[in-house]
Structures are given as C-alpha cells and as structure tokens.
C-alpha cells in the first residue's frame, strides 16, 4: 500500500449527502477480478448520460477537477454496500483523500486499506472547504496526516483527528496481513483455548 503523508492537491466539491456505494461504483461494474481500471466508472450515473456521454456540468468532467486528488462531500459518504470497488474506483481516478462531515463505517474502514485518507470535519468547515475548492487550481488544499491538519488555500489550518493505529499504518504504508501473521502464535493459542471452551463448535466440511 502506498503510504499517505502529506497531500497538496486540487479538491473536487461534491455537495451531496448520502453518496452511496451504488452511486460511487454501480453494481454492473463489479464484475471484475482486478482492483484496477474502475476510475472511468467512478460516479458513473452522475458523470455520464443515457448515451454514456459525459455530462459537461458534472464536477469531475470539468477542468481542473479531472485532476482532483481530494474530494469534499456532505454527510454519510459511502453508505450502502461493503464493496471495496468504491475506494478502488476513487483511487483509480486519482482521489487520495475524501473530506466529509461523516462517513459510513464499512467504506471508512475500506479507505484506510487502500491508502485513502477519509477526513471527518464539521459540516460548516466542509462547506468552507467546498467554497475553496470551487476556486479550482488556484486554491489547492493540503491534507497533512503527519500533523493531522487540513490547510486551506489561505494558509488557515484545521485540525482533524484520526485513529492512532490507522494513522500509523497509513503513514508507513504497512500491510495489515503481514503484521497479523507475525501474531500466528497468539492466534494458535486462542484456537486451542476456543476448542477447549467450545468443544461442540462444528468445523465445516463437505
């Protein structure tokens, strides 16, 4: 996983609440066995019309937002399914950080596994950042995970909080599975105790 430290980038304003995972990446695009290539389908229903032509007024179809690496949205971003295709689509498009007043739990967790930083800030702050983002390429926003601040184009800094463990993993781009496999002995100890405590526990075998 690519580490996330400091990102200064164009931010795309998406002033919508409840952007669900079916909007982020519709189910018809989930029939892939790869992680890559989903960027062109990101927010497909918003970006393309019935003839699959770009809607020119949608933010991601306009300059400079085609090069956006930050997205700013309203409440409950990423609600709905557990599909990791949602963060994969964002990442493939180039988005490395999403700023919103709140996120759905599964999506929020999935972001961290893919080097995307979700930043929770109050609605009023998100609205300010949304106004900054509307200024386009002249108003880049910085998301600094090391210092845990978002820096507005004016230089004003807004602190945000993030889970300590997840911050550590993201800053260092660490592979969670590798970390857990280092605890194989603890897992084996648990399994032995589980077998003793719940000897009735069936094992699935066909």
């Amino acid at each position: 996983m690519q580490p996330f430290t400091v990102l200064t980038a164009i931010a795309a304003p998406l002033p919508m609440a409840n952007v669900d995972t079916d909007q982020i990446i519709p189910a018809r695009f989930l029939k892939t066995i790869k992680r890559s290539g989903l960027g062109k389908h990101l927010l497909a229903g918003h970006r393309y019309d019935d003839q699959d032509q770009e809607r020119p007024d949608f933010v991601l179809n306009r300059e400079p937002y085609r090069a956006a690496e930050i997205m700013i949205a309203h409440e409950n971003f990423g609600c709905g399914s557990s599909r990791e295709h949602a963060p994969w689509a964002l990442l493939d498009f180039g988005i490395r950080s999403v700023i919103a007043p709140s996120f759905a739990d599964i999506f929020h967790g999935n972001c961290f596994k893919n080097g995307i930083l979700p930043v929770v800030l109050p609605r009023s702050v998100c609205d300010q950042l949304m106004e900054d983002a509307k200024l386009g390429a002249n108003a880049r926003i910085t998301v600094d995970l090391e210092r845990q601040v978002v820096v507005r184009p004016s230089g004003a800094e807004i602190p945000f909080s993030v889970d300590h463990f997840r911050r550590h993993m993201l800053l260092n781009g660490l592979d969670e599975i590798g970390q857990t496999l280092a605890r194989t002995a603890e897992i084996a100890t648990y399994e032995t105790a589980r077998h003793t405590a719940k000897p009735w526990m069936p094992s699935i075998s066909l």
């Binding site: 992680r35 557990s82 990791e84 599964i106 967790g109 999935n110 596994k113 893919n114």
Partner: peptide, 8 residues
C-alpha cells in the same frame, strides 16, 4: 455479523 471489504 458484519460486512467487510475485500482487503479484510
């Protein structure tokens, strides 16, 4: 019982 992403 919880839903998880593919990395999980």
């Amino acid at each position: 019982a919880v839903g998880i992403g593919t990395s999980e």
